[in-house]
Amino acid sequence: MLKMHNVRKSFRTDTIETHALRDFSLEVKEGEFVSVTGPSGSGKTTFLNIAGLLETPTGGQYLLDGEDVSNLNDRQRSRLRNEKIGFIFQGFNLIPDLSLFDNIDVPLRYRGFSAKERRKRIEKVLEQVGLSARAKHLPAQLSGGQQQRIAIARALAGEPRFLLADEPTGNLDSLMARQVMELLEFINEWGTTIVMVTHDPELARRAHRNIQIVDGQVCDLRPVTEQPEAATA
């Protein structure tokens, strides 16, 4: 599904060069649920951004579904993001001016589905996240947990094969966090590959596999047994 080999990413400002990822190699298989942990600033988000085609690596090789994505143009990358990848963010990132229905509709419109197809899909995912009754509401009218469920619905509506989540429970209390986690597990059971960055050791343990990133490199590839001290974000 995802294969990175010696991926490097550095950010250069006037004064300093930060190496966010250094010789980063990792493979995620189809259907896996991988949790990513590591101290703040270690490169977790950078990894997700490269995996999700939000940023381009400075060097190394990245194969998504066996395809080398380094030479794709903006349109092709946008299309891949739209069709294959779903994103869930720590801050939910719903568009405040759009109703929940229209929020879920955003990626579907970029996909070019017919109005009928979009409606069908939106109604289906709203039902999956248990918020059908709120379709016409604005994001601000919902609790954080509900907003994140809508964000998950938005990520799912396009039926992506690959779901990337950057601290999806970071802004939620533990009850809501658990609900979101259950939803993700459910989605994974239906075949979607998930990579989730988290600071919550309990949630990290529930994944099939935990990867620890330290200082821009994969530190450990064992199944989770014990957790390093969780850093605060």
Binding site: R75, S78, F87, I95, V106, P107, Y110, R111
Partner: peptide
């Protein structure tokens, strides 16, 4: 700006 970034992440191309 944030919303634009989100749209891009959800599949909007530059021209979109």
């Amino acid at each position: 700006a944030k919303q634009i970034g989100v749209r891009r992440a959800l599949g909007a191309s530059r021209s979109n």
